[in-house]
Simulated assay, not measured.
Amino acid sequence: MTQTPPAKKTNVFRSVAAALLGVQSDHNRRQDFNQPSALPFILAGLVVIVIFVAVLVGISQFVAG
């Protein structure tokens, strides 16, 4: 199994967002798992989750008045 070159930042965030929503294609998932390091995906995942939670808190505070 050959490793692919490191993923670009935009591709990492796109993969994390697709996986978060559950629409990650099998082809992209295979590419992601062939990357030399999982660290960019972990960091991007944490950033996306923090932003997601912040948006939910903001919406709930706006609605609650």
Rank of each mutant, 00 (worst) to 15 (best):
P6Y: 01
P6I: 02
P6E: 05
A7T: 00
K9Q: 08
T10P: 00
T10H: 08
R14I: 03
V16M: 02
A18P: 01
A18S: 09
A18F: 01
A19T: 05
L20D: 12
L20A: 15
V23H: 14
V23G: 12
S25G: 07
S25I: 04
D26R: 14
D26M: 14
H27N: 15
N28C: 08
N28L: 15
N28G: 07
R29L: 15
R30G: 11
R30T: 15
Q31A: 12
Q31N: 13
F33I: 09
N34R: 11
P36C: 06
P36T: 09
S37D: 15
A38W: 05
L39M: 14
L39T: 14
L39S: 12
L39Y: 14
F41H: 05
F41I: 00
I42Y: 02
I42Q: 03
L43G: 09
A44N: 06
A44H: 05
G45W: 02
G45A: 06
L46C: 12
L46P: 03
L46I: 13
L46D: 04
V47C: 06
V47K: 05
V48W: 12
V50A: 12
I51G: 03
I51P: 01
I51Y: 04
F52N: 07
F52M: 11
V53F: 04
A54G: 06
L56W: 07
L56Q: 09
G58Y: 00
G58N: 01
G58H: 00
G58P: 01
I59R: 07
S60N: 15
Q61C: 09
F62H: 10
F62W: 14
V63E: 15
V63I: 15
V63T: 11
A64E: 13
G65W: 06
G65T: 08
G65Y: 04
